[in-house]
Structures are given as structure tokens and as C-alpha cells.
């Protein structure tokens, strides 16, 4: 849901996809998803494992995009 909130804030720049890991197993295998939720930022420029608070997600985004 946090990813959706982020997309809503700037849809011109952000694409947020919730992906069912079992249905899209090739993609899950590609990213070696082992637990959920697992957020892949810009094709693995960053990774956030687990459901994290907004503040932590923001910090991870800043790290991944700097």
C-alpha cells in the first residue's frame, strides 16, 4: 500500500506494481524473492524486505536513487 501511496504522489515518475510472487514466478526467481513483502526499487538499485514504516521506506528510496 505504501508503494501505491508513493505512486499517487507523483504518477508521472512513479510506477508501483504489487506482484503476486507465485503467479509471476519467473520474475520472483529473477530477483530471488524468498520472503514477502519484498520491494524491489528500480530493478534492484535497492531492496526493502518486509513491511517497513514510511520513514524507513523514504530512507531506502533516497539511498537507492542518490
Amino acid at each position: 500500500m505504501l508503494a501505491y501511496q508513493i505512486a499517487m504522489e507523483n504518477p508521472r515518475m512513479v510506477l508501483a506494481e504489487g506482484i503476486e510472487a507465485m503467479e509471476f514466478d519467473e520474475l520472483s526467481n529473477h530477483y530471488m524473492i524468498s520472503g514477502v513483502p519484498d520491494t524491489v526499487i528500480n530493478a534492484d538499485a535497492g531492496r526493502v524486505v518486509g513491511a517497513v514504516p514510511e520513514r524507513q521506506m523514504l530512507a531506502e528510496l533516497m539511498r537507492a536513487l542518490e
Partner: peptide
């Protein structure tokens, strides 16, 4: 979006695309 002000500010300031893929079951 209901996000915090500092998150809104950062996301709105993005100049490059951000792709979030959230894997769930």
C-alpha cells in the same frame, strides 16, 4: 496519498523514474 509531508516533498522532487515492484503472496 496520505503520506507524511517530507515523503511527499521528496517524491514530488523526483527527476528520474522510480519503479517499485512489491512482491507479495
Amino acid at each position: 496519498s496520505g503520506l507524511m509531508p517530507q515523503t511527499r516533498e521528496y517524491i514530488r522532487s523526483l527527476t528520474r523514474p522510480l519503479h517499485l515492484e512489491v512482491f507479495v503472496t
